[in-house]
């Protein structure tokens, strides 16, 4: 078995393309593993923080269409049409987006929860739970109590999560991720860094992710035999 391929993913929670990209990457990684067979290296994933709109308020009284039309000054009908398009693409990726119930919020605390979860070996579960809560279930992912409820659902200690988020225990880790992202020149998300050497931007097709992993693996094997 080869050494695992490390994938560092910069993304946000309030990022429709990040969830879609997550699904496509997972499908691509599965296809790569199937093609590589028994020799396939493990793929290790770590999520990193990226705030798309850090000035977003924690609470907003209204739905996503209200928020976007109010803050962007666009006609509600046009916003609705765009969201329907995104919902259709998400559906094709196996995701159920419900912008009607989505609670627009600031994601800085959610990012801190992802770091807390990483420290407790549950970052991947937390990432999936937060994205589903936000895009599918209309759960609030900006308040400490709501985040603690979600954390408890994946087996984390609710009281300790409240303590951690209240203290801002992992805020410096979020800032370190953001600084590292800037060093890499990351301007948009999702963004995938492979083995610290290769970058893949955006919600690529699953086949593209599979091809990229295959390419990285092949180059690594070539390097090992030189």
């Amino acid at each position: 078995m080869s050494e695992s391929i490390k994938i560092d993913i910069w993304s946000d929670i309030a990022c429709p393309w990040c969830y879609i990209g997550k699904r496509k990457f997972e499908a691509g990684a599965a296809a790569f593993a199937e093609k590589a067979g028994a020799d396939a290296p493990d793929v290790t994933i770590e999520y990193h923080s990226f705030e798309l709109a850090p000035d977003t308020p924690v609470d907003f009284d209204g739905d996503e269409i209200d928020f976007l039309s109010t803050h962007k000054g666009m006609p509600a009908d046009q916003v609705k049409g765009m969201l329907e398009h995104v919902t259709g693409i998400a559906e094709a990726a196996g995701l159920d987006y419900n912008f009607d119930v989505l609670k627009h919020t600031n994601t800085i605390k959610a990012h801190q929860l992802l770091h807390y979860a990483k420290a407790h070996g549950k970052q991947l579960e937390a990432k999936e739970r937060l994205l589903k809560a936000y895009f599918t279930e209309g759960r609030h992912v900006g308040r400490i109590d709501d985040l603690a409820d979600l954390a408890a659902e994946i087996g984390l200690d609710r009281d300790d999560v409240v303590r951690s988020l209240t203290e801002g225990e992992f805020l410096s880790d979020v800032r370190a991720d953001q600084a590292l992202g800037r060093e890499y020149g990351i301007q948009g998300v999702p963004f995938f860094v492979i083995d610290g050497k290769y970058g893949v931007s955006g919600a690529q097709e699953a086949a593209t992710f599979a091809q990229v992993l295959d390419q990285v693996w092949a180059q690594r094997e070539e390097g090992a035999t030189v």
Partner: peptide
């Protein structure tokens, strides 16, 4: 190291709060 970009160059990504409303 500088990253070597792989994959398609026209994949959809989010930049700034434009992500919220592509």
């Amino acid at each position: 190291p500088r990253l070597t970009l792989l994959g398609e160059t026209d994949a959809v990504a989010c930049e700034g709060d434009a992500c919220v409303l592509p």
